[in-house]
Design a protein around this nucleic acid. Structure first.
Lengths: 202, 202
DNA sequence: TCCGGCTTCTGACAGATGTCACGGCCAGGA
DNA sequence: TCCTGGCCGTGACATCTGTCAGAAGCCGGA
């Protein structure tokens, strides 16, 4: 009884190497391999994998969104997120998107195969250190609007631009940014943005 | 006549997968595999590889610095930089550090083996798109001090901190930052820092 | 019903930031 | 020799940012 795998990672070299690595396991078979998030679902519908390994950083659709779509359209396919950074925020969002496994690329070499087999056995698999970090980071203390303003700040340089984009007064924007910096324990919007992003609060 | 390889990448899963992939080639042999930049040289001295494949993002010592050390201490070993982002600035710095090859991880699966063989044949191997982007980005227009101040700005939040670190007046720091934003065509220090970093001007 | 929290806005103020004009220094060319 | 242009360094100034206090409207829970 072989486990059918779908691989999604935008770095072709890495995807191919992972495919070779997993193909060496006697009970695994890589049945599909894509480089874009928006190709995941159609490939899964065509090849019916048991487990989909999704990277997060992908063009078209990120791995978390792809996981959500996959869960809705191909219910028999279990999703394992395989990603570069042990960014704590991604874990929570991955679980919300229906993933049952979360493996980081700095994990030991056999962790991935192990995770796949345990997921097939019905377990949820998460890197323990990552799980602890996620618990430590806690729920987001930001209000919805503080979050909106921070996201807008990511691509706007000045308060005036953020205000224009969100149809708010400048003072309001400054207030939300101030609240965000307080809650993140930082000293200006840029640090607040970075911290909130790292913790998955955006 | 097999080509002896050293692999350096901090992501264990990826390093292992690449090792397996390259080990499948009949003329390759992976003789060493490390996860930290500062372990590269001692491993090279011990195992005498023909080619060292170095990632840039590594703890201890980054791949570019490791390449420079390697070139000085193990002259027979050719260096190929293998990295995630096609960041244009890294290419120039890699070449200055003595690397003879530069392969990005989004390259096609056989590009790596091909690059290794060509490097062994005495060629320099660079992704053509990356080379073009590097030429397009051009030389850095920043003066030495502007560069210093930008680098200091990366880890300091305020002008006062940067000034204290570089023993300059606050006005001077503001002036350099202003020059940097003008030359990068951006509107504040944060954008200037990001752009200069992307273009390899730091 | 009242209370508390969120959203939105305003006004005010200290402090940080970005821009400008200026002077000194040094190297290269007339 | 002097002049010019580039870089370094500085202080002054206007503007932007972050913080605080306050106020009105809205919604959900006690």
């Amino acid at each position: 009884m072989t486990i059918r795998l779908l691989l999604a990672d935008d770095q072709e070299l890495i995807r191919h190497a992972l495919g070779v690595l997993l193909g060496l396991e006697p009970d695994f078979e890589v049945v599909a391999s894509v480089g874009r998030g928006d190709e995941v679902t159609s490939a899964a519908l065509e090849h019916r994998p048991d487990v989909a390994l999704l990277d997060i950083d992908m063009p078209g659709l990120d791995g978390l969104a792809a996981a959500a779509v996959l869960g809705a359209q191909v219910p028999g396919c279990r999703v394992v997120i395989l990603t570069t950074f042990g960014r704590t925020g991604y874990l929570r969002r991955a679980m919300e998107a229906g993933a049952v496994g979360f493996v980081v690329k700095d994990a030991p070499a056999d962790a991935l195969a192990d995770a796949i087999r345990r997921v097939m056995a019905g377990e949820r698999v998460v890197d323990p250190a990552l799980a602890a970090a996620t618990l430590a980071a806690g729920e987001s203390p930001l209000t919805a609007r503080e979050r909106d303003v921070l996201i807008a700040a990511r691509s706007s340089a000045t308060v005036a631009e953020i205000a224009a984009r969100l149809y708010l007064a400048e003072g309001t924007v400054r207030n939300y940014l101030s609240g965000a910096t307080t809650k993140t324990g930082t000293r200006n919007r840029m640090e607040a943005l970075r911290v909130a992003d790292e913790r998955g609060w955006l």
